[in-house]
Design a binder for these strands. Structure first.
Length: 800
RNA sequence: GCCGCUGUGGUGGAAUUGGCAGACACAAGGGACUUAAAAUCCCUCGGAGUAAAAUCCGUACCGGUUCGACCCCGGUCAGCGGCACCA
């Protein structure tokens, strides 16, 4: 009988589909397991093998869990709003709705061809009005709770896509979508006050099981620092200049102050500043600098001294000059700093350039050469002198400042508020109405969803205006509050909106009266295991935790953290070892692989190709190795014997393999799990036959990886349905052989190998080693200094 | 610059976390079967060395701890990822 995957695979896919084999049942009395993979953006190019690897990990875990008796929710959906679809629509003239529907069809057929055990009755589509009704609902709840605001600021603007981008979407000064240089533009935009949740997001990390580097990246992104706010009085007008510093202990070393060029105090006192023209010119110059210049060409410090404002150091009443410089940012802290050149690298550079004195207050470095940022004894610091560590010095100075009422401890976060809007068509409309009388008014809840109007022309407006702004019938409306003429907001939400809560919708995807029923949420949450890409750790993962935490705070969800566990898979690189990309032409289409080798081979290969969490290059020839493996499994049917249990020779091997495969799957070590099954197969081949009991165990272990072939073989031999059976168990006591081979070392070098009973004591092992013919002559005539024995492993004899 | 990760045969990668380095595969070479090829099966496969063994050497580099180090410690180099004038 030949292994004909082309017949087998569609047959079982049809069976699972018709029998709803993988349907999750809300409220079932079985233990629940919610495994989540990041839903795809349905692009026109279709899926690539990276998607397959990303889903195969939890696919294996999910199938194993079902065999273990769990009620598993393993859903899939589509994150379908976004620029590429809209750009395709503009180029081809086909409506984004149609483009999206076609792409979803394509993705669905690809996913089904691979045989993933998704619950297809729970598919969500973020562009479906039944879905985005609730995206808008969450937005309005945030609006109601003061987490939504509008502000006119400098924003990251992509001149090519003509949209405002968040910091997250413009990392490195490049547009995330088209890679053009980002420019700074002043615009009134929507923000979500995510900074209000900075501390909650940080603390929440303590209660979840995320990979350590994922936690770390989130912590760095939130960027909490502890320090102090200190008020410096301005000599000329008595005003207070508030600064933030992490080093209040160096307060006696302050020799100048720096404000950001946009600091409001300059505007406020422009009449009393003598060189205001010079300051204005400097400010203009800074505004013209691109993101690149501001961040990459960091070494050269520039700035201008403010003539007419002088600060007084609150701790010793020294007069201090004030400068403006673009190395101080308006968006962090208070937009002004106290500069301590002796102990801060940037201040040191600035002081040197402008000839400002440098006062050492911590001993330990050579401040004539460079700033000293380490710890040491305090000097030149009044009451702080003699303190030898930073912690004590900070505690002391804070006490002094508090007593004087000029300073206090404080914290700061690097994370900024979330710029929450796009000037594009293909996104969720922001449900807000601008009324000349009432201001910003929320669209009433019973009018949701606020539908995207059908349009012909999706081209964005010239100065970054949404295409919606051109549609009079959409824009003109009545104010929900006063009934007068009003205008609708025309911006849409960013792509991250829909994906910030999709895992909640899966719990109850067709609910019309809530984002999901409280019962369903209570039953399924939290997600037990979430796997996805590292690239989403600082964006999607933070955003969705923020939304979820907010929903928890208003009582809409029952748990504070959405994901109990988070892991990440590594990329699949092209055969040339570089990241797969369309422009490089090294993308591998999973459809081609399924057609030529079958879905099972593809599934086994993406998990066998290397460590699941590391990147690995695609290799066509390694793929063939996996094909051979499955063909040899298939051939086992020809050497089947009638025994139900394990054969004596292979019993320990089977128990051990079951143990290893079970443990490896839980740790995402799929490559070694498959290797263990290959080893077992080699042992079976050497023996020449397989018992029914052995075949059943092997097929069950392999089923999560290669479900079609194992289902078919199981059906042929045993007549039932494998995915309805139970996972294999093992007996720890039966994992060991009666005899084990141990190694004998002389002075740490392997000199002999011998067999001993596996329960031999240390003394018995040493005795056996010394009696060994190879060992004897090497020990004879020498003094034995030490004898070490490790049970079941080795004996080491140290001689002189 | 700061933070994190990684460095093992021709290749992808193993090594129960201090106990036989190179599991399992791929590629390569040799052989069997075949008129031939493909497929399949068998053998070899880190380097030096030998007729074959023995025996050295070998986990990026230098040093340390240990009976014993890919694993732990100190230093150096290289690659990847994140953040980046964050006060």
């Amino acid at each position: 009988m030949k292994y004909d995957f082309k017949e087998i695979e569609p047959k079982w896919q049809k069976y699972w589909d018709e029998h709803e084999s993988f349907k999750a049942e809300t409220g079932s009395s079985k233990p629940k397991f919610y495994s989540l993979v990041e839903f795809p953006y349905p692009s026109g190019a279709g899926m690539h093998v990276g998607h397959i690897k990303a889903y195969s990990g939890l696919e294996v875990v999910s199938r194993k869990r079902r065999l273990e008796g769990y009620n598993v929710l393993f859903p899939i959906g589509f994150d379908a709003y976004g620029l590429p679809t809209e750009n395709t629509a503009i180029k081809t003239g086909v409506h984004p709705r149609t483009v999206t529907d076609n792409n979803i069809k394509k993705f669905t057929s690809q996913l089904r061809k691979v045989g993933f055990s998704f619950d297809w009755s729970r598919v969500v589509d973020t562009t479906d009005e039944k879905y985005y009704k609730w995206t808008q609902w969450i937005f309005l709840k945030m609006f109601e709770n003061g987490l939504v605001f509008r502000d006119r600021t400098l924003v990251n603007y992509c001149p090519s896509c003509k949209v405002v981008l968040s910091n997250e979407d413009s990392q490195g000064g490049k547009c995330d979508v088209c890679h053009s240089d980002i420019i700074q533009k002043e615009k009134e935009v929507w923000y979500l006050r995510i900074t209000e949740y900075a501390d909650k997001l940080l603390q929440g990390l303590d209660s979840v099981d995320f990979l350590p580097n994922i936690k770390l990246q989130q912590e760095n992104w939130i960027g909490k620092s502890t320090g102090a706010f200190v008020k410096f009085r301005i000599k000329e007008n008595g005003e207070e200049l508030k600064i933030y510093t992490t080093r209040p202990d160096t307060l006696y070393g302050v020799t100048f102050m720096v404000m950001a060029p946009e600091h409001p105090m300059i505007e406020k006192y422009r009449d009393s500043i003598k060189n205001i023209a010079e300051l204005d010119a400097y400010k203009d110059e800074c505004a013209k600098k691109s993101e690149f210049e501001r961040t990459q060409l960091v070494k050269d410090k520039t700035g201008v001294r403010i003539d007419g404002l002088t600060a007084i150091n609150p701790i010793n009443d020294t007069e201090i000059p004030i400068y403006i410089s673009d190395y101080v940012m308006m968006g962090y802290g208070t937009g002004a700093i106290m500069a301590v050149p002796a102990h801060d690298t940037r201040d040191y550079e600035f002081a040197n350039k402008f000839g400002i004195p440098i006062i050492e207050v911590i001993k330990g470095g050579d401040i004539s050469k460079e700033a000293y940022t380490g710890d040491g004894e305090m000097v030149n610091s009044g009451e702080l002198n003699g303190i030898t560590n930073k912690k004590d010095a900070i505690a002391k100075v804070l006490k002094v400042l508090e007593a004087k009422g000029v300073g206090e401890a404080g914290v700061q976060y690097k994370m900024k508020d979330w710029a929450f809007n796009r000037q594009r068509y293909w996104g969720e409309p922001i449900p807000i109405v601008h009324c000349p009388k009432c201001g910003m008014v929320a669209v009433p809840y019973d009018e949701l969803p606020l539908r995207l109007p059908p349009v012909e022309n999706f081209q964005p407006g010239q100065d970054g205006e949404s295409p919606l702004a051109k549609i009079e019938s959409f824009v003109n409306c009545k104010c929900p509050k006063c009934g007068g003429d009003a205008k609708r907001e025309t911006d849409t939400m960013p792509q991250w909106a829909g994906s910030s809560w999709y895992f909640l919708r899966y719990c109850d995807p067709n609910n019309d009266s809530a984002l999901a029923s409280p019962e369903a949420l209570k039953y399924w949450l939290p997600v037990d295991w979430y796997n996805g890409g590292m690239e989403h750790v600082t964006r999607h993962l933070i955003y969705s935790r923020f939304w979820h935490r907010f929903l928890y705070d208003i009582g809409a969800v029952p748990v504070p953290e959405p994901y109990a566990k988070r892991t990440a898979q590594g990329l699949i690189l092209g055969p040339d070892g570089v990241k797969m990309s369309k422009s490089r032409g090294n993308v591998v289409d999973p459809n081609d692989v399924v057609d030529e080798y079958g879905a099972d081979v593809l599934r086994v290969y993406v998990l066998f190709m290397g460590d699941y969490e590391q990147a690995a290059p695609w290799s066509e020839s390694s793929l063939k190795g996996c094909k051979r493996f499955l063909e040899r499994i298939w051939a086992l049917q020809d050497t089947l014997t009638d025994d139900d249990g394990y054969s004596k020779e292979l019993s320990a091997a089977f128990h051990r393999t079951v143990k290893k495969v079970s443990a490896d799957i839980e740790q995402l070590k799929f490559n070694t799990a498959i290797a263990a099954m290959m080893t077992l197969l080699n042992q079976i081949s050497d023996k020449g036959s397989i018992t029914k009991g052995e075949l059943k165990a092997l097929l069950t272990m392999l089923n999560p990886f290669a479900p079609h072939i194992t289902e078919e073989m199981y059906h042929n031999v045993f007549g039932g349905i494998l995915s309805e059976q139970s996972w294999v168990t093992y007996d720890e006591a039966l994992c060991v052989e009666d005899e084990v081979e141990i190694v004998v070392q002389i002075n740490g070098k392997v000199r002999a190998k011998l067999n001993v009973p596996s329960e031999a004591s240390q003394d018995e092992m040493i005795e056996a080693a010394l009696a060994n013919d190879t060992v004897k002559p090497l020990v004879e005539g020498k003094t034995i200094v030490k004898k070490i024995a490790v049970p079941k492993k080795l004996v080491n004899i140290v001689v002189k």
